[in-house]
Design a protein around this nucleic acid. Structure first.
Lengths: 208, 208
DNA sequence: ACGTAAATGGACGGCCCTCTCCGGTTAGCC
DNA sequence: GGCTAACCGGAGAGGGCCGTCCATTTACGT
């Protein structure tokens, strides 16, 4: 697909340094960190950064490609678990932990990049997989029948709010929130009926 | 406490217009809206705005003073309810609805203003009241015993994450999230034990 | 060793935001 | 009606970030 322009050795080296710097910067200060800060951290000029990654989105897409893939593999692990409910729980716990660990990841998750094809493809794969995890957990009678796929979105956004706080509080808070919610998702506790779920996965990225 | 400088009529009028404009702007576009936009909306110059409210925080404090008071009265209503559990639930539902309805309110809630004395006082009052609501609900055997006051913080932050999305999705999502969590808070469902709650109320405002 | 194309980084113009200064205007009192 | 202090609004200085341009440096094939 790519003609692979064959970067020169120094350029390749700098590209790696930029990605590393961006990863650190995004994780600690969020997606809004100035491009100049990333460049400085990478020990390159701004021009170099812009030449390699024409837009901020390009950079973000590249940086979080791996982490999104990690997300997808978390779902795969869940599917591999012989216990459907345990798989469901651990998938959610792991993704939420990832969100808390990396401030930028959370934002990247919530910000749409319609142009990033790979990105989108991986996400769709993860969603498909998760749908299967949900199906299995329901079939096993452990997950409440009215659990909606959009509830994952809901949980992620909620967790995102918790993740925004101070590191330590965010970690503990997220774990507790997830524990509470997983409890509500259990089939046994489904007695009272919550309102309808008009949250679609696509709506995850909407701004106001 | 205030010597009340006795504003001239036109100044008083403009002050009110500014507050109204700021209220609208904060609600729809969040706390980061440019001062110039507020001034324009109010039909005054920027200088007038700055003369009346020397800092953005002053303005925010004034604007959300009422809403915070509304929060406190929600707690009072909850205390007035003869059914402790119903009071507990409705207090949470109402505050969360307020968060969703006003984008700025959410941010204001999460941003500390150590200088705003009244602000702080009202908040402490609301917290005291809510602690009593919790005590009553536990005493009635409806609220799980290990519910921690910090769980309110947790819920508010989670709801805040949901509230950040598109209006319609945010409303429905928040309702559903609250329903899920309230279910987990019921004493009957307390079977599995969630992790410890090291989230203090004070930590609500921490940045990273 | 050398020539060339690739790569570099800092300086710069443009844009948006905050906050202040100041000449003109107006309310309120006599 | 007229005076004065309070009030007004726009212009502009200051600062931050974005994204580009270009003179200089550097890798790498021969």
């Amino acid at each position: 697909m790519e003609p692979a322009p064959a970067l020169r050795a120094d350029a390749r080296h700098n590209r790696a340094r930029i990605l590393e710097a961006a990863r650190e910067a995004f994780a600690t200060r969020g997606l809004d960190v100035p491009m100049a800060a990333i460049a400085r951290r990478a020990g390159v000029g701004v021009a170099t950064l812009y030449r390699r990654f024409p837009s901020r989105e390009t950079l973000i897409t590249e940086v979080f490609g791996d982490e999104l893939a990690a997300c997808a593999s978390v779902v795969d692990e869940a599917l591999a678990d012989p216990d459907p409910w345990r798989g469901f729980c651990s998938a959610i716990e792991k993704v939420c932990a990832m969100q808390v660990a990396d401030l930028g990841f959370t934002e990247a998750f919530l910000t749409a990049f319609p142009d990033a094809i790979d990105y989108e493809r991986t996400r769709v794969r993860a969603e498909r997989g998760f749908a299967e995890v949900v199906r299995r957990a329901k079939a096993a009678g452990r997950l409440r029948a009215d659990f909606d796929l959009a509830d994952l979105t809901l949980l992620l956004k909620a967790n995102c709010g918790v993740a925004a706080g101070a590191r330590e509080a965010a970690e503990a808070g997220s774990r507790r929130l997830v524990a509470y919610l997983l409890q509500s998702f259990r089939a046994e506790h489904a007695a009272p009926l919550p309102p309808a779920p008009p949250l679609t996965l696509a709506l995850l990225h909407e701004r106001r």
